[in-house]
Write a protein that binds this DNA or RNA. Structure first.
Lengths: 297, 297
DNA sequence: ACTTATGATAAGTTTTTCTTACCATCAAAC
DNA sequence: GTTTGATGGTAAGAAAAACTTATCATAAGT
């Protein structure tokens, strides 16, 4: 038979000792003195030994003296835990990991993260980037709490919350014949040296699908792709967010017909709720991107 | 505001997880299922975050998964403490120190202790021996829990529980003229070479008091005293318990007139209660010595 | 479709905890 | 020496908490 030591009576014992009496302790605890007497007597009954001497003064027995620091220790452990768990629930502490596609990582996350950490100083964020399949995999396996990417088709295991549309356009060097245009139709790309990349599958199922067959070159790595474009070896299609602004010689021209876009949104496991920290990030992202509409300049 | 996490609802959470559901857990805990539902819901309210998913299955949320091992840890600490304190109260564990005079240490304690440790296998005993003043000092200062000695006069700080009378007699070598006697009167010691020792003050206030003035020699150390007696350099007075039986050539002769004795008993601090272990020892000693009457053979 | 699980909810009961009111004891103050 | 103001303990009833019974809605198994 193991006695259930409730935390409250232990606190009463500490208070009586610390304040030197039942009355003083009762004032401190906002309880009446008999409440303490009875609770402590109850505790003594459970333990099978008196904690306080019978006399008029509130003096500990040797057994009580032995118990006191142990009570204090248990209470401290309790309070520490309670505080920690409450802090997590209140988003004042915690940890979250998210997986995002590179375009989001480089164009969206810097500003988002800096605002997030200043709003939630206690939360630690882990950011992992990779292509859409990587993001999907990480979310499904539970390696990360949430993902930021686009999803093709519906997924049984995932829940997708759309955030914004990212229009696909053509990227070429500034001396290319099409470079000065603000928009164009897919037919105008006939005969161009078109380079495929990881986002090319966005064209599948659109009027521009036949462009996919024109690929002489397929480059998945973004650095290689841009270097190739800068070298003037061809053009490619990219969502606007994935267009690397930092290259002066590259131009982005909207694809007006057909209008092709990917839908970027939050990805999470279906049927699972989020950790408080991940929920905070989710709410924060929806609030940030939802309010400002299109997130890019 | 720090939330008070009661131990019982934490146990409920563990049971639900361990048994894979509220119903299974309720059977295990001998509670009804709504009791668990409500208690856990209450706990979730305190923490400010759900522990279980809302769906039909009893699945932990990520927050719940985070909490679970911490709940388990707190409960383990609680149980360990509860068990330990109860074991002490039940005298199944603990520690006690006692101070005794050398005669008690060598003649009484060996048997007493061996019986005590077999009766209370969990209790550790520390035995410290010294003269009556040492015992008194150790008890008053709280260095030891109890003392076994005789007390002269009443002491404000000490409580004395008499156990038995220890008669004073004369000790001499087997070739001494008095050696064959079974009892004698103090006058018969006139002219003898009387050696004083730590117990000589027992004669104070008795008819034999004048013997104290006859001391040519005073030897406090027992080994030295016996060596001197064995050397035939004189006689001394000792309580029977202090008479060292292991010396073949020494004889103990009762002092019939006046009959002088010391009262040996338990000494403890007045107004303080004993630790469970010390109480066990006290009870044991009273039971052992009280029943058998005179403890010596 | 029917049965049998699951957990949630509502109302009422039991148990626990606390307060009010009072008592006994002790110590310092008048 | 009595009085006063502390101390803590006790008893009865009120308030709060925990639990049970009864019932429901929903999902999964047959």
């Amino acid at each position: 038979m193991i006695a259930e030591l409730k935390i409250t009576p232990l606190r009463y014992v500490l208070a009586v000792v610390d304040h030197g009496g039942f009355h003083a302790a009762s004032r401190y605890l906002h309880r009446t003195q008999p409440a303490l007497s009875m609770a402590i007597r109850e505790l003594e009954g459970r333990l099978g030994e008196a904690l306080f001497e019978k006399g008029t003064k509130a003096t500990l027995t040797p057994y009580g003296s032995y118990c006191l620091p142990r009570f204090r220790e248990l209470i401290n452990q309790h309070d520490r835990l309670s505080r920690e768990l409450q802090a997590r629930a209140a988003r004042e502490a915690g940890q979250l990991d998210m997986a995002v596609v590179p375009s989001v990582a480089s164009r969206l996350m810097p500003k988002l993260l800096s605002e997030f950490v200043s709003r939630y100083p206690g939360i630690k964020v882990g950011l992992h980037d990779g292509n859409a399949d990587f993001v999907r995999e990480q979310v499904i396996s539970g390696q990360v709490d949430i993902g930021l990417s686009s999803l093709w088709g519906s997924d049984e295991e995932l829940q997708f919350q759309p955030l914004f549309h990212d229009e696909v356009g053509v990227v070429c060097r500034d001396d290319h014949p099409l470079a000065g245009r603000t928009s164009l139709m897919w037919q105008e790309l006939q005969g161009e040296s078109l380079i495929g990349n990881g986002t090319s599958r966005l064209l599948q199922g659109t009027a521009a699908e036949s462009l996919l067959e024109m690929h002489d070159l397929y480059i998945s790595n973004m650095i290689s792709l841009t270097a190739t474009l800068v070298a003037g070896m061809g053009v490619t299609t990219l969502p606007r967010l994935a267009f690397p602004q930092e290259y002066e010689r590259l131009r982005f021209i909207e694809l007006a017909d057909p209008s092709v876009s990917r839908e970027v949104g939050l990805i999470r496991r279906k049927g699972y709720s989020l950790s408080p920290a991940a929920q905070a990030m989710t709410d924060f992202i929806i609030e940030s991107l939802g309010a400002s509409g299109i997130p890019l300049q």
